[in-house]
């Protein structure tokens, strides 16, 4: 029984946090963008639970409003990049020459670590959320493509594929009907496991000033803002990073459960 509750614990926590975030959006008395010069860097109090930042904005409100940028945006990015990866991975199973080409492309992308690719890409396109999207997309699809390609290769060598071929299933239909359904579970596991990593990556990009630009209340950006005031007002930087850590850990445990 205890084990059963422990199994659902991350999901319950996640649900609770999402619920509070929605409630916060609905009921907060403050505006996440409104500058209030009279209340700069006030410490946490009953009025401002998590204090205010250097422009006098309520940190709690900004966290609640920034949740969609920090949590929903990575989910979208991850889905898009896994889609791209799966498609390219499946394309590489069509034939030997296609496979050589795609693996060469995969190699060239994976030769640089994905975070560096993201930094370089964000740099070349200029900072902003769109470039973050492209950056993660470009750097992360390789993982999926490679896994899909490798598992499909293993599946391809299994006897049931031969029997499918003998009964007249070839080309796209073979991939769609036999290889893709068998490669899908691995991709699903990987998406859950990667969610935390992507959140970390995007927030790191924002922390470097390459992600969402101010005044968007993205958590990584909030940490960057608060970094300069760490000596006098540590809460401004610490609270968003603690929130990111909690979510990353929850996603990590959920990924382990799915596995």
């Amino acid at each position: 029984m205890v084990r059963r509750i422990a199994c659902f614990f991350p999901i319950i926590c996640l649900g609770f946090l999402v619920f509070t975030i929605i409630m916060g959006i609905l009921f907060t008395p403050y505006d996440p963008y409104e500058v209030n010069t009279q209340e700069e860097l006030t410490p946490p109090s009953s009025e401002h639970w998590f204090g205010t930042d250097h422009l006098g904005r309520d940190v709690l409100t900004r966290i609640v409003f920034g949740a969609s940028y920090t949590l929903l945006f990575p989910a979208i990015v991850l889905l898009l990049s896994s889609l791209l990866g799966v498609v390219i991975g499946l394309i590489s199973t069509i034939g030997r020459k296609v496979d050589l080409l795609t693996t060469a492309i995969m190699d060239s992308f994976s030769s640089i670590p994905s975070f560096l690719v993201a930094i370089i890409f964000a740099g070349l396109l200029g900072p902003g959320m769109v470039s973050t999207l492209f950056a993660i997309l470009v750097s992360w699809w390789v993982h999926y493509a490679r896994i899909v390609r490798n598992t499909s290769m293993i599946i391809r060598n299994q006897p049931f594929i031969l029997s499918a071929q003998l009964s007249g299933t070839f080309g796209v239909k073979l991939i769609r009907k036999h290889i893709f359904p068998n490669a899908l579970p691995i991709v699903r596991e990987l998406i859950f496991l990667d969610m935390g990593t992507i959140i970390l990556m995007i927030s790191s990009l924002s922390f470097l000033g390459l992600g969402a630009q101010p005044p968007i209340p993205d958590w990584g950006g909030m940490i960057l803002d608060g970094k300069s005031y760490i000596q006098i007002a540590p809460w401004v930087a610490l609270i968003p990073s603690v929130f990111i850590t909690i979510f990353v850990m929850l996603f990590y445990f959920m990924g382990r459960r799915v596995q």
């Binding site: 640089i112 670590p113 994905s114 975070f115 560096l116 930094i119 370089i120 964000a122 740099g123 070349l124 900072p127 790191s204 922390f207 470097l208 000033g209 390459l210 970094k227």
Partner: peptide, 28 residues
């Protein structure tokens, strides 16, 4: 590989005069 990404973040935190902070500077 991914350690280099980490190092870039760390260099910006500690204003370390290395490759990472230089690249971030160049990128911006």
């Amino acid at each position: 590989g991914s350690l280099w990404g980490t190092i870039i973040v760390i260099e910006t935190i500690y204003a370390w005069p290395g490759l990472g902070s230089y690249i971030i500077h160049a990128v911006t």
